[in-house]
Amino acid sequence: LVRYRTISKIPQITLNFVDLKGDPFLASPTSDREIIAPKIKERTHNVTEKVTQVLSLGADVLPEYKLQAPRIHRWTILHYSPFKAVWDWLILLLVIYTAVFTPYSAAFLLKETEEGPPATECGYACQPLAVVDLIVDIMFIVDILINFRTTYVNANEEVVSHPGRIAVHYFKGWFLIDMVAAIPFDLLIFGSGSEELIGLLKTARLLRLVRVARKLDRYSEYGAAVLFLLMCTFALIAHWLACIWYAIGNMEQPHMDSRIGWLHNLGDQIGKPYNSSGLGGPSIKDKYVTALYFTFSSLTSVGFGNVSPNTNSEKIFSICVMLIGSLMYASIFGNVSAIIQRLYSGTARYHTQMLRVREFIRFHQIPNPLRQRLEEYFQHAWSYTNGIDMNAVLKGFPECLQADICLHLNRSLLQHCKPFRGATKGCLRALAMKFKTTHAPPGDTLVHAGDLLTALYFISRGSIEILRGDVVVAILGKNDIFGEPLNLYARPGKSNGDVRALTYCDLHKIHR
């Protein structure tokens, strides 16, 4: 019993810090008490220290592992850092350059016999395009090294910054494609005289377009951006097909006994025919423009016929181009109408809503002055909100995010209106959640004399007048207030005048 009563005193000691020596009952000389009392004092002292730490809000209350900052290894790049964003855009520009100039170089340097010394005699450094290609190869190699040090988000939505895990993730992902696209074939085969082989191998750079397509997928929600990307894709495919079309004609031209190829026909049409040795002929500019003209006309199913396939190889390629053109029509131009419709969806919704308003007016036989006010209010409210119901949009977000959005939407009023000066951010967040926005066209009466005042109004834009009878008592403008002081009276009061809008007004109100 003594032991039980001794232990039962522990909660009292913990909360009230009572010393055991003052209790005459606990001072009985028993061996059990002498053993338990020192333990009680020690526990009391420890609990006292913990309570003191909690009340003082000291940093040592938290466990040590929670006080440590997340460790980022040296030379690790955050995937959302500004440097990584700028670097990704730079790589994107280099990939676009590669997609345009690599097929052009591979096709127009394929057994090209233009006048001038061969590239091997001039030297590697004197070729501007080769120098640019070398810079692109170096940048792609540097990009691989950067990807080995860039964080990523795993399946659990955690940012991984450990170098080993980053390397394994990159090896399992895009490393092989990036490595093949970054191989400097110019340096590996330079001086061997195989410019045709170098041009063909350099087309491996186009593998990076797969990554670019995935990154550009984030802009699919913007109709104008999608339309622009589709047109660029169409032009890029036409450019690639033009390079292939020229390569076919250029390879067949020296081996044909009869002059029936499209390059021969082009030379005869523009007065620059090929001679018996295969030299001469149109310039590279004429060849490229004509090839691009043929691919565009074939892809769009126009086909004027002034550039036509004559050999079997050219006919087979033309059939493939027609098939590609039909697929592009289905996948690209078939979506253009939907994209344009999405661009004008706001206008369509406006006309639909206006039609419903006019049908309501016609069905209920609203008189002319009231009908005009109804239409003007709808037009003004639509121009202010673009038909978007803010309350319906915010309803799907958590309250903390709703408060931040409301604070942002009402920031101008909260910053410049005098009653809100000096208020804490928590108070402003709470008030912003209570605001209701209303609009009024010129001549609209917001409050009639004798109406119950259940709200306090803040003028965000425009001006109003307060009338008693036919006498203008006051004219209020931006950041002015009218209405009933909230919670100042037990019952809502009545208006002693009319409140009429002089201009288009936007008002925020808080109800009782």
Rank of each mutant, 00 (worst) to 15 (best):
P398M: 01
S412I: 15
S326D: 01
C126R: 01
R421A: 09
L176P: 08
F140E: 01
G443E: 01
L431R: 02
Y288M: 01
G173Q: 08
N306T: 01
A291D: 01
E64P: 14
Y293V: 01
L370A: 01
A338R: 04
V160A: 03
S297W: 01
Y104R: 01
F378G: 04
A225G: 13
C122G: 01
K425L: 09
F185C: 05
N386L: 07
A119T: 04
P118H: 09
P369C: 04
P118I: 05
A213H: 04
F294R: 01
V160H: 01
H351D: 03
L370F: 02
C406A: 14
G116P: 13
D178Q: 01
R211W: 01
K418E: 12
R165F: 09
I340Q: 03
Y170G: 01
N156C: 11
L188R: 14
L207R: 14
E115G: 14
F234D: 03
I237S: 04
E121V: 15
R371G: 07
H79F: 01
L374T: 04
G325I: 01
R205D: 01
I361D: 01
L323Q: 01
T385A: 05
A348L: 15
N265I: 15
S81L: 01
Y219H: 07
A181N: 01
Q253A: 14
V393C: 08
F234G: 01
I198W: 11
T150E: 01
I332D: 02
G267I: 01
L229Q: 03
E112D: 11
E252Y: 04
D286V: 01
S313G: 04
L414N: 02
E221S: 07
N310S: 05
F294S: 01
Q127P: 06
A330M: 05
V447C: 06
M328S: 04
I177V: 14
I237V: 11
D178Y: 01
H408Q: 01
G199C: 12
A119Q: 01
V160R: 01
L187I: 14
Q402F: 01
E121H: 15
K202D: 01
L446M: 06
P398T: 03
P254N: 15
V302W: 01
F108T: 01
E375N: 08
N312Y: 01
T150G: 01
H380R: 12
M390N: 06
L229V: 05
P103N: 01
K287E: 01
P70V: 06
V212Q: 01
G116C: 05
S192K: 11
L414E: 02
S277T: 08
G305I: 01
C400H: 08
T352R: 12
G278D: 01
G173V: 01
E196L: 10
N410D: 01
L227A: 05
P118L: 14
R421W: 03
L263G: 01
K285T: 14
D217V: 09
S194P: 14
W174L: 05
N275W: 01
L90V: 11
W262K: 03
T120C: 01
I183Q: 03
Y377A: 10
T290D: 01
T233C: 15
W262Q: 03
R214Q: 05
A204K: 01
N154W: 03
K436S: 09
I248E: 01
K418R: 07
L279W: 07
L67V: 05
Y104N: 01
I388L: 08
F190N: 12
I144M: 14
N250G: 03
L236F: 01
K436A: 09
Q379V: 07
F101T: 03
V131T: 01
L209Q: 01
I340V: 10
D217M: 08
V289Y: 01
Y344T: 07
V136L: 01
C427I: 14
L374I: 07
I177A: 10
K111R: 06
I366K: 01
P367L: 01
W240L: 01
G305F: 01
S276L: 04
G249E: 01
I91K: 01
F397N: 01
L145P: 01
Q372D: 15
L93Y: 01
N156S: 13
I183E: 01
K84P: 01
P441I: 10
R211S: 01
K436F: 07
P282K: 02
S194C: 14
G305C: 11
I248V: 01
I146Y: 01
V393A: 05
A449K: 12
A181T: 04
I138G: 02
W174T: 04
D178R: 01
S81N: 04
S277H: 09
V210I: 13
P282R: 01
L134T: 03
Y80F: 06
P184R: 05
A392Y: 07
I144V: 11
P117S: 08
T437F: 12
A381W: 14
S81F: 01
T150S: 10
L401G: 02
M139L: 14
Y288I: 01
I146S: 01
Y377M: 05
P70A: 07
F378W: 11
A155V: 11
L299G: 01
V321K: 01
Y170R: 01
R208V: 09
P103S: 01
P369L: 03
L263A: 01
D404V: 02
G281S: 01
F171N: 01
F108G: 05
Y222I: 05
Q415K: 11
G396M: 10
I91Y: 01
R205N: 01
A204W: 01
M390L: 08
A130F: 01
I77P: 01
V132N: 01
A225Y: 06
G199F: 01
V86R: 01
V180Q: 01
L323T: 07
K395D: 07
F296W: 07
W262N: 01
N156A: 13
K285E: 11
A238D: 01
S258Q: 13
P117T: 12
I270C: 01
G396V: 09
H73G: 14
I77M: 06
L93S: 05
W87A: 01
R214G: 08
K172W: 04
V86D: 01
L409I: 09
V180N: 01
Y124M: 04
R429I: 04
T424C: 09
H73R: 12
F333Y: 03
F185H: 04
K84W: 05
I166V: 05
N386M: 10
S81D: 01
P441V: 11
E157H: 04
G191L: 03
S301G: 14
A449V: 13
F378I: 08
L216T: 04
I332Q: 03
N265F: 04
V136G: 08
Y344W: 05
Y288Q: 01
V95C: 03
V212A: 06
A235G: 11
I324K: 01
P398W: 03
A242W: 01
I244S: 01
D88M: 01
Y124F: 15
V393D: 01
I361G: 03
L236N: 01
G173I: 01
I183D: 01
T102Y: 08
W89S: 03
L206F: 01
A423S: 03
F140H: 01
K395F: 04
L323P: 02
T445W: 06
Q341A: 14
W75G: 07
A403P: 02
H169E: 08
K84G: 01
L394P: 02
I77F: 07
L197I: 11
F420H: 03
C400Q: 01
G116E: 05
V86C: 12
G325Y: 01
L207E: 01
I324L: 13
G271V: 01
Y274M: 01
L446P: 02
A225L: 03
P398Y: 01
D444P: 01
K202N: 02
L292Y: 01
W382C: 01
L279E: 12
M328G: 05
L209F: 12
D143S: 01
N310K: 02
V136N: 15
T150Y: 01
T290L: 01
E114Y: 12
H439L: 06
P163F: 06
V447P: 02
I284C: 01
D257K: 13
A224R: 03
C400K: 03
I248R: 01
T150N: 01
